[in-house]
Design a protein around this nucleic acid. Structure first.
Length: 275
DNA sequence: AATACAAGCAACCGCTGTAAA
DNA sequence: ATTTACAGCGGTTGCTTGTAT
């Protein structure tokens, strides 16, 4: 990897932005957009590096930035999304229009994290976040079975328009979830992929993603093979299952491929998956 | 009023992923 | 297949402001 030259070395300014600099950057982007951040400062007449300009625009100057204190609802959403996604600030920010990843990160570190620590300490039980997750039972089998029984229909799209209420999915949404012991995964324990059915290309289209609602009815089981575990070592399957919607907005690592496999390899047992 | 400490926030740093050459 | 250049991301730093002593 080639490191960009140091700003100072190039005689470029660092540190807080002056109002005049903000003005120059804003008016330049208004007129020309920001196709090439590296070239932008030179063309705009700014003594800044492109990286600095980009950060300033994204975190402060963008017209759609929402300023001011975070609402209770926003804070709740951050806490719940962080519970599900971890420190993926940009993914969390994507769910909070007008808020930047930097801002959310700051709020988390200066406020929410401490608040959670306090509330955790005040509880005898472990973190309350477990309450929104389905029960997990170890299984000796080579496959994982995820079975839903309540409610009748679980709608992934509801999760996509995530709100605090959407995050409070109760454990009753999943009667039981059984996940095999990942330690038992063996590389030779694989299955052929040649039987994967062909899927219509429209499956991947934006329209399919945006306009259709993948739903999964109750009482169906999903088998996750060891091959899939090897291929998607990232997956905490119980969470993945709840967060299936992330596959559709690319906020979930390998999510699209994961759900493609879910759909194809387990076609028999997941035939109720509708698009 | 002066000083020390803490909290909040903007900005920087360094790494990774990816597209183009 | 490899190299290069760039955008984007998450972690960290350091300045500013507020509060306590």
């Amino acid at each position: 990897m080639v490191r960009a030259p140091c700003c100072e070395k190039m005689g470029l300014k660092k540190g807080p932005w002056a109002p005049e600099e903000d003005q120059i950057l804003t008016s330049y982007i208004d007129k020309h957009g920001h196709g090439n951040w590296r070239a932008l400062p030179k063309q705009a007449g700014l003594l800044r590096c492109g990286k600095s300009c980009r950060l300033r625009w994204i975190n402060y100057l963008r017209p759609d930035i929402k300023r001011g204190n975070f609402t209770i609802e926003e804070e709740e959403t951050i806490i719940k999304l962080h519970d599900m996604l971890g420190n993926r600030w940009s993914a969390i920010a994507a769910k909070l229009p007008g808020r930047t990843d930097n801002e959310i990160k700051n709020v988390w570190h200066t406020n929410l994290k401490k608040r959670l620590l306090k509330s955790d300490q005040s509880k005898s039980k472990p973190s309350s976040k477990r309450a929104i997750k389905p029960k997990i039972e170890r299984s000796d089998s080579n496959s994982s079975i995820i079975t839903q029984s309540e409610p009748d229909k679980f709608n992934f799209r509801e999760m996509d328009t995530i709100t605090s209420s959407a995050c409070t999915t109760s454990s009753s949404d999943f009667s039981s979830v059984t996940v095999g012991d990942s330690k038992n995964i063996k590389s030779e324990d694989t299955e052929s992929t040649e039987t994967m059915p062909v899927i219509d290309e429209s499956f991947w289209s934006e329209a399919a993603i945006d306009d259709e609602t993948p739903t999964m009815s109750s009482s169906q089981s999903l088998t996750i093979s060891n091959e899939m575990r090897l291929q998607y070592p990232f997956a905490n399957y119980e969470e993945t299952f709840q967060q299936g919607h992330h596959a559709y907005d690319s906020n979930f690592d390998d999510g699209m491929d994961f759900w493609y496999d879910i759909f194809t390899r387990t076609n028999d047992s997941i035939e109720l998956l509708e698009f």
